[in-house]
Design a protein around this nucleic acid. Sequence first.
RNA 1: CGGGGCGUAGCUCAGCCUGGUAGAGCACCUGCUUUGGGAGCAGGAUGCCGGAGGUUCGAAUCCUCUCGCCCCGACCA
Length: 441
Amino acid sequence: MRLSSYFMPTLKENPSEAQIVSHRLMLRAGMVRQASAGIYSWLPLGFKVLKRIEQIVREEQDASGAQELLMPTIQAADLWKESGRYDDYGKEMLRIVDRHEREMLYGPTNEELITDIVRHSMKSWRDVPKNLYHIQWKFRDEVRPRFGVMRGREFLMKDAYSFDLTKEAARHSYNKMFAAYLRTFARMGLKAIPMRADTGPIGGDMSHEFIILADTGESQVYCHRDIVDFDVLGSAVDFDDVAALQGIVDRWTAPYAATDEKHDIEAFAAIPADKRIEARGIEVGHIFYFGAKYSKPLGAMIARPDGELVPVEMGSYGIGVSRLVGAIIEASHDERGIVWPEAVAPFKVGLIDLRPADAACAAAADRIDGALRAAGVEVLHDDRDDSPGAKFATMDLIGLPWQLVVGPRGLAQGVVELKQRRTGERQELSIESALARLTLR
RNA sequence: CGGGGCGUAGCUCAGCCUGGUAGAGCACCUGCUUUGGGAGCAGGAUGCCGGAGGUUCGAAUCCUCUCGCCCCGACCA
């Protein structure tokens, strides 16, 4: 992509409405534009990142055996009256009346809808287990949206719902999501720590928030250092191996890790001082077992092998996809701008042509651009007629993992400069070795 | 929903107190010079001063109402 024709309206100055760093950088990098409070348009650069994150989430859900579907954003109020949540949900729910005076709502979540789908077609123990998910826009009319896309009113969320015959089977479904989440966040270059979360009226130990550590996080969290140093899961996870999966969950839930509201001061104090971590965290995922909370009132019953009808055992599993865009920036930036983990970066390489007016520079840059694209590497090629400083600053701001600088000075020596955004490390190489480096893997 | 603040050019903001032809920097357009970390000079375009009422000869400025946005708190993924 040539920057001269790409729609990427960057800002040199900080918009006054943005306080938190990810919000500022997203606006400055031209990733999003606020449409109204807590509601954003996603511009090309931001949309690319959003789709990358969404795709990683999708791949890992699929790998765990979950099946994707798509439910609507607008739901009928009737279902919510049936579950009893229509009145409970309060003003956070955006209520709409259609032309027939029928009460509708913009879905803040989908438990009712999925349960409705399932109750009509899941009748027997033979129909479970199932895990159905979708990635869809939700709306919660927050009193005070803030932090840009991290706490918007409209947000993109992956929500999965599991269906099982027994609580034991539901635990395995829960564990699958637990492992899938570890993999998902690790792939995005994040250290997400599962922390025991409030289970509400259900009780038990089956609710975890996945928290990433970032100085600007919204909540205070406490954990044992060991869990931060845990290895990311290898590629081989057998999601059908009940015992192995339980082992993974046991291992990750053994060290102390809690958010402020679940914090146990005594238990934390028992950890050796040098192993205690007190930090700020951002919740990017939440998994939850809730048994028959919805299946019972909505009559989602399945027949056991002995013929008795029982409410299906359910769990729900959310990942804040749009929130992750902000959260990743919170966890990965410096004073010059965003530092994208390669897996979610909008482009892998920023190709800077320092002097597009110079025929040799332009030819070299074009050749590199073509070679990278032919190798399947996404490139943002800065071919604008602008000062070098402006180009470097823009490229640092938008945070592409690699910058490849082509200029007259280097070309005269037969070299280009390759810079790694994260470390700032630069190296002069021949065009061929730079290409080889960037097209590896 | 309580408390506070801000709406003036695409962005950051001055002007408002004390009413009198709407400003600066950056960004944008033209030309020239420049070219390895947000360049220089010259010229140019850009605004219903958030909206509606009112006071006044005259309102960005004073008064009333309203809408929007931001921050702190409570709440939440």
